[in-house]
Amino acid sequence: MSRLELRHVRKAFGGLDVLADISLNVGAGEFVSILGPSGAGKSTLFQLLTGAEHGEGEMLFDGAPLDDHGRHFAFMPQRDALMPWRRILDNATLGLEVQGVKRKAARARVAPLFAEFGLAGFERHFPAQLSGGMRQRAALLRTVVQERDMLLLDEPFGALDALTRTAMQRWLEQMWREHHWTALLITHDVREAVFLSDCIYVLSARPARVLREIPVPLPRPRDPTGAAALEAEILDILLNPQPSKGNDHD
């Protein structure tokens, strides 16, 4: 059963084609990745979903056209986008405050989650006092407490050092196993996509089209060493792109 369904979505800025033809499905409780080279327009796709931009093609949520964008998605931008002037607790409640939840009630809803996100004891700290990994966990906490239907994660670990990134990927995989969020992840990291996803859509360079849809049948919890063959196959697709279907756009 698919929650989010995109059919032949296209987007051009001025005369520049950014998204040529994107079709994809995200089922309930599924973790789906969009994998593509930098500058392929992956973030543009999220702008379409959150309603910041408008494109062509069909975007369906639970079978109905997307209209009230804010209702379905909780969006986590590339950098953590924590507000330096708010304490971690107040950063975490931001989405709820925007929804109109009173500050006290919002805090009460968020506070029990700090331990699970490895942030217990840091509620009163400012973001600048936290490490990069902790900041990303705080940003994810801010995203999931909004209790939207689906998470949109835009290269959430792109700015972290390699070691922290790996730690965060393992942590996120474990969190996902517990919560089964419906999630769409943008990344250009093949290993990250294979490690986290149920399904991967490999995009071409701009103008972006779907080169291949790759299910990831590996058992969970994921074993970081068992994915080498799949990673090699995807790298090959990315580095030697040949459109699989008859897309004759340009």
């Binding site: 959150t50 309603g51 910041a52 804010g70 969006f75 931008p77 986008a81 405050e97 925007v98 949109l152």
Partner: peptide, 20 residues
């Protein structure tokens, strides 16, 4: 990114101004 995120949360211009 803070602006984008707030708009995705459903904040209008006034909220974005006051919050960010």
């Amino acid at each position: 990114e803070i602006g984008q995120m707030l708009r995705a949360m459903g904040a209008g211009r006034w909220r974005v101004f006051m919050l960010a």
